[in-house]
Every structure is written in C-alpha cells, then in structure tokens.
Design a binder for these strands. Structure first.
Lengths: 249, 249
DNA sequence: TGTTGCGGTTGATCGATATCAAAGCGCAAA
DNA sequence: TTTGCGCTTTGATATCGATCAACCGCAACA
C-alpha cells in the first residue's frame, strides 16, 4: 500500500461518501441495557470508575468520553477517547493511576457493576460477541494512537486526530468542507496526543493559517480540505478502515 | 517450555519480599487448548496474523512476543509486548498497518481461527471469563505504556521497561540483584518506547555507568539496585500492581 | 464596575532528543 | 580464516518541541 497522497482515490472516495459512514458500531445488546443504569452526561462531567466502592463497567450509548489517568509527578495522559459502542470495565484502567472517565459531550452512558457485566459476557453469547467486537475495535484504535504518540511529529499527531474526528462526526458544511464539534479542550487534547498545550496551539494555528481548517470558535472546527488534511497523517488508511466502515472497498 | 524464571517462582525485589503473584495469568482453559494448534517459537520467528488467509487468534502459553506495526513512511512501532496468558485476535491489530507478531524468545503459542476462538468465547463461560481477564490486563498495561510514551522522558521510559521486566522475569542473581534476559533487541526496544535507537543506547549506557544495572552481554541484564531503578519511573506503583506483588515498605 | 481565575494564544529561549557520521562488535556464510 | 552485514555504541551537530512569560477573552462574582 502506498502512503497517502492528495491524489489517492481512497481518500477522495471517503471524502465524498462521508454522509453514509456514520459509525458502524453494532447495537448494544438488550441484556446489557436492561441491567444497566443509564447516566445522562453533560460536557465536563466526570464519572468515577468505581460504583458503591465496587468496580463498574461502562458502555457508551451516545456522546464522547475520555479516560484520564494521572501518574505521580503530575503526569497526565488521556488514555483513550471513547465513542458510542465502546466498553470500559474499570479493570481496563491502569491501577494506581487516578483513572477517571470524563464526558466530553452530552450523551448517555450505561453503567453496570463489573460483576454483572462480567457474568453477562460469560453467559449471554450476544453480549460475549459484542464485547469481543468492542475490545477489538478499541485495541486496534489504541494501536494506531500509540504509534502516533510514539512516532509522529506534532503536526502528524494533530492531523491524525482531526482526520479521525472528521471521519467520525464530521458533517458537510454549507460552504463545503466538514464541520464538527471538538470534544476535547486544548489541554485535554494535548494530554491525549502527548504534546505540550502551547505546542499544540501553535500547530493548530499553523494548520489554520495554511487554510486546511478553520474554527468558528474554539470548539467548532471546519475542515476545509479533507484530502489534504488526511495526507498529513501516515495513519490515514488505517483511520479510514477503522472509522469509515462503508469504504472498505 | 517455560522462560528462565522457573528457577525462582517468587520474585524478590531487593530485600523486600513480594506477596503472592496476584497477576499470575490464570490457566488457559482446556477448551482453547484442545482446539488450538501449538506453535513452538524461537527467537526472531515471526507469525503472520492471518492463517490460511483467514483471521487468527493467538494465546501465549510461554515465552514473550511482540506485536509490530509499520505505518507508511516507514514508521515502526512495537504496539505491545505479550506475556504468557495474553490473547491476540488478529482484529486487535490496526488495519493497513503491516502488523505481525514476532517471538522474542523460545516459547509456545496457541493458534486458532478467529471464528473458532470467537465462538468459544461466546459459548464457553470459562473462555469468556478468561478472555475478559486477559483483555483487561492488556488494556491496563497499554494504558501505562501509552502514558510512558506520551509523557515520560527517555530515562523514565527505559526505567519503566526495565522495572517491568525485572518484576516479570527477574530472578535473584548470585551476587545480589535481579537477572533477566532482555527479550527485545535495542532496535525493537526503541520502537517500543518511541525513542531513537541511538538515544536509547545512550540512556542505557548512562544507567550502566550509574551502577543501577549491568550487562553480561547485550541480552543479559542484571539490575543491581531495584529500588533505585523503580524510583526512576513514575509508573512504579502501577507496575507492581500489574506485574507482581506489591512493595511492602 | 473591577477583580479574579482559567483556558487559550503567541513570542523568546533553552534543552532533550533526533539526526548524521564513523567505528566496533557479533555472527553467519563463503 | 575472510568477508560482509546488521546491530550497537559513541561523538558532533541540528532541531523540534518544552518551558517560561506575557497577554487576551471570557465567565463568575463581589
């Protein structure tokens, strides 16, 4: 496979078929919904990973969440961004790392006791299949993200993030391009990408200056040239496969 | 069959005894073993993630493996190091990323068709529980590792890796300290830690010069002062919880 | 109305790490 | 043995991103 170029037909195809590719997460099994408490989130709300002192498991129904960890010395890292369909048993979070979930938008999250969820996975084959799918999707995304943090330069990381968001939640803007709401604050995004917030801001400004993106306000981005943006990230193809289910051809 | 650590089943961290190894991987369910092909690995051997053109799932029985990905522009990243008990369905690997498994030591790996494994998880509650445990352990480790790559400086990353290895496979050396075999080459380790190989080599040399570690040869490390080494990584506590007993004092 | 605080942006500077280059080492094939 | 090659180490230099500091916009609030 070739690196992405601006002429890449796959990229073009994706840019043109964005309306249809809204995320392909399978429906959450009824057995899970029935046994879960529904939590309606608002932006900024944080959810403890424990629940009456016991472990909990979360399933994202809608909206976007982030899983934060803080290690000693004040090192903060956003370990994962969670989209609808994703599953987070509290055991997924590293121990002794002050882990917590934060809602980045309004949405709904299902919460169960870990034991309940675990039993469901063990006894209900639909839930088991659902869990396997979710775990695989999330692991694959984490792999890409690790490669981005470990190997990409600043601009590539930012382009990767923007490309993923555009694919996941972008909608066609009136003047052409794709609009979406930026779920993470600049600070959280820096913690996600392994960058300094100042550096991130500079990189954003450079992308804005180059005309690839623009901002209505800090939280509303417009991708003016998706193909050029995607060409900036070495992970473009992988992102298409992960986030744009309809273009696998 | 087993890695070198069988000589000393109880890990000792300097003078402090570790409690029973809470993180010891549970036994692989018989149902998995019965349906799997056993692959005996030697160091350097690579295993394709597909199997007769179909997806495969792997379960590590003994030894250590690495999951490599290569993104366009030649960016290599070791996405995970796999220890006994770990599970890797090929769907865990990012798509379009030239992913493959490489054995880093002699060992045994069970290989199944993905479909077979998936059905087992869906129908056998022991397997389902096993898979959940493995997925959680691996996700938690990945979280720590992401934080290390995203937020730690060079020395902290190396100390983190060495601490984890010492906890997992270190055995007490005659002259005091903990010995273990380094499963990754310097190049692979650099790709795992998100560092340049030159920089990694320099950092190792500095640690060696400071007396914390020494090398019999490139692949045989001796941790001379585990406590001091662990003190260099902000993730020490998390690693203790994930990889072995806990620091008692 | 001013004050305070927080998050974001931008500039100037510094330093850790990447890059480039050269040499040593280990190992396998010839 | 020699040859060759890949991995490792080490030195010199370059550079990207972090750090420090100032300022802005905005919201909460007295």
């Amino acid at each position: 496979m070739q690196p992405a170029s601006t002429q890449d037909p796959i990229l073009l195809a994706s840019a043109q078929s964005l309306e249809t590719n809204a995320s392909a997460a399978p429906a959450i099994p009824d057995a899970v919904v029935e046994r879960a408490a529904t939590v309606r989130t608002r932006r900024g709300q944080s959810l403890a990973l424990s629940y009456d002192g016991g472990a909990a498991a979360f399933v994202v129904r809608s909206g976007i969440l982030a899983l934060h960890v803080t290690l000693p010395e004040g090192l903060r890292q956003v370990v994962a961004i969670l989209y609808p369909g994703d599953v987070v048993p509290s055991a997924f979070a590293p121990p002794h790392a002050s882990a917590f979930l934060t809602a980045m938008s309004v949405g709904e999250v299902l919460r169960l006791r870990s034991k309940t969820f675990s039993e469901l996975v063990a006894t209900d084959s639909d839930v088991a299949r659902y869990f396997q799918d979710a775990a695989a999707r999330q692991a694959a995304r984490q792999g890409i993200h690790l490669a981005a943090v470990g190997r990409f330069d600043c601009q590539q990381r930012v382009a990767t993030y923007l490309t993923e968001l555009a694919l996941r939640i972008g909608v066609r803007a009136p003047g052409g391009g794709l609009t979406f709401e930026m779920p993470l604050s600049r600070t959280d995004l820096a913690d996600y990408l392994g960058l300094n917030a100042d550096t991130l801001s500079r990189t954003m400004s450079r992308l804005r200056a180059s005309g690839l993106i623009s901002f209505q306000d800090r939280q509303h981005a417009v991708v003016r040239d998706f193909v050029a943006l995607a060409a900036l990230t070495p992970a473009a193809q992988s992102l298409m496969a992960l986030c744009g289910g309809k273009l696998s051809g």
